[in-house]
């Protein structure tokens, strides 16, 4: 156990050290000052908001998809699962190019290039697999006989999905949604190709870094990380994980 503890501590240090270095280098005063800049907070708000919308859309569509994959055998299932995982594997810039080629002329009458819609599409395309796979694994763990019993008690498949299945896979779905949301707010490669403007936080950090250098980009990065961490902890606490701290 001591060896495990030491090895774990080594990894945790490796993960935390860059963050500590960032916050130490920026300092609290600069952090608060940057947070008051309109360009920064609107950019961060836009990032959080669009990633949240992407999560909402996939909750509505990807959770049923995860259920179908977990419960049913059908032709092309393996291919479908591979397709879902593709965005995780491809370079994000390549995904951005693909999205630009597919939706460059618009989607259902909506402009995509350099619009919030385009940003949301890019975020969703690259992060949806996290939520779909989490939901799929959650449903797969659940004994199908819960559904059979619920139906003998009068519930239709649609009704029992909400009353029996979703409450039991809630943690998997919340964790998947969190993973998707965090992956969305960190998305840069695809977003920068499909919509440089309006600037989401990762694009703003990159823009400031290339235009003005580290002293101007580091505080934005620190603010972004701090706010993301706060949202993460709040959601985990609300989901009943009392040991979040």
């Amino acid at each position: 156990m001591i060896v495990f503890g030491m090895l774990s501590a080594l990894l945790v240090f490796f993960l935390i050290y860059p963050l500590l270095g960032l916050f130490y280098g920026v300092g609290m005063e600069k952090l608060i000052k940057v947070l008051q800049e309109r360009e920064v907070y609107t950019s961060i708000w836009l990032t959080f908001k669009l990633s949240f919308f992407a999560v909402c859309f996939v909750l509505l569509t990807g959770v049923p998809l995860g259920y179908l994959i977990a419960r049913y055998e059908f032709r092309g299932k393996v291919l479908l699962e591979s397709l879902i995982d593709i965005p995780v594997m491809v370079p994000h810039t390549a995904a951005g190019i693909a999205l630009l080629m597919a939706f460059g002329k618009g989607l259902l009458g909506l402009d995509v290039v350099d619009t919030p819609v385009g940003i949301m599409i890019a975020m969703m395309f690259l992060s949806a697999p996290f939520l779909i796979n989490a939901a799929k694994e959650g449903f797969r763990k659940l004994d199908v006989r819960y559904e059979h019993v619920a139906r003998t008690l009068g519930a239709s498949p649609f009704q029992l999905f909400f009353s029996v299945l979703l409450p039991q896979v809630r943690n998997d779905i919340v964790n998947g949604a969190l993973m998707m949301w965090s992956r969305g707010i960190g998305e840069f490669g695809a977003v920068v190709i499909i919509a440089y403007h309006p600037m989401v936080a990762p694009v703003l950090i990159y823009d400031r870094f290339t235009s003005y250098g580290l002293p101007y980009s580091a505080p934005v990065a620190a603010v972004m990380i701090s706010l993301s961490a706060v949202v993460f902890l709040l959601i985990r606490l609300l989901n009943g994980n009392k040991r979040a701290f």
Binding site: D143, R145, Y146, H148, V149, A150, R151, T152, L153, G154, A155, S156, V164, P167, Q168
Partner: peptide, 20 residues
Amino acid sequence: RPIEARRIGFVYQDLMLFPH
């Protein structure tokens, strides 16, 4: 007839009580 319209109760060996 669908399961829910049969009025047939089922108690499994593992009982399958809803844990939530």
